[in-house]
Design a protein around this nucleic acid. Structure first.
Lengths: 147, 147
DNA sequence: TCTTGACCTCAACTTAACTTGAGGTTGTAC
DNA sequence: GTACAACCTCAAGTTAAGTTGAGGTCAAGA
């Protein structure tokens, strides 16, 4: 068994579950950099499977292609990344996930604090005042969203 | 102090932090249903502040406008919602948040299981095999994403 | 060698969620 | 009673993330 064999775009699509057009699009955006066959067709490294899998995970987390590219910038193009490369990037993703979870928990706790009164304000019932006095000067329900 | 006073679109924008054009857009999508002044200008209920705040929260959670509309369908238009109305909808959102957190935790755990080897496959190192044997027939890194 | 599926480029279309602009009207403060 | 900010409608533009289609080339098996 010689050097790792190159993959055609179709094979890569089959391995990642992505469409061929999506892979071309990702190339255009710089997420992968295939080389070309003598006839001009794209040839991918086996490590690009993992690269694109990473893209899928990151997208599921809500990262834009630009953000994903910034993460992937820590991986080499053109050669198979080392374990250390992947470890570094996986740890960065772990942080992204943890941050996102913390944010959701904060939002949840704030909603919880208000379920009793049915309002959406951080300060209990501030806006559910029957006289509707508050709110003429107040900050409004945006509080739930703000830090 | 008589009946709750109506809000102009500009006032509602100021109170929610949304742009005027976004509020018009949300009306078009059915998220709010203002009545009109004699001259044809939009007039909003005070409760629409909370309605739109809910929209902002739900959007932050990644719900599309269609999904948000489905949630809001449980609230009455044209009259101020009751506490019970808001409690019901808040609880539904709590579930959305909890589900999303659980999903993130699952993804995180799976990544964690692989940080040691640097691969992105659920099965440790299945794809990081130096001989590159696996993967000719295997399921590939998509496993991290699948259930 | 020939055929045919897989691949190529480039341009245009799609959907979501808005924004921007043109051209005109309302309402309120002086 | 008039100025002018705020409002109105409707059409078109914008960004992200791709998809679709036309018209043409490559490569691998019979």
């Amino acid at each position: 068994m010689p050097e790792t064999k190159a993959l055609t775009i179709g094979a890569l699509a089959a391995r990642t579950g992505l469409s061929v057009s999506a892979i071309r699009f990702y190339e255009e955006k710089g997420l992968v950099e295939p080389f070309r066959s003598s006839g001009g067709q794209r040839r991918f490294l086996r490590s690009d499977i993992r690269r694109l899998s990473f893209v899928l995970i990151a997208q599921q987390l809500g990262l834009s292609i630009g953000e994903i590219e910034r993460q992937l910038a820590n991986l080499p193009h053109g050669r198979t990344p080392t374990q250390a490369d992947w470890t570094r990037i996986s740890k960065a993703m772990r942080k992204v996930i943890n941050d996102r979870i913390a944010e959701l928990e904060r939002t949840r706790d704030r909603l919880d604090g208000c379920i009793g009164c049915g309002c959406l304000s951080l300060k209990k019932c501030q806006l559910y005042n029957p006289e509707d006095r508050v709110g003429l000067k107040g900050p409004g329900p945006r509080l739930v969203l703000e830090d």
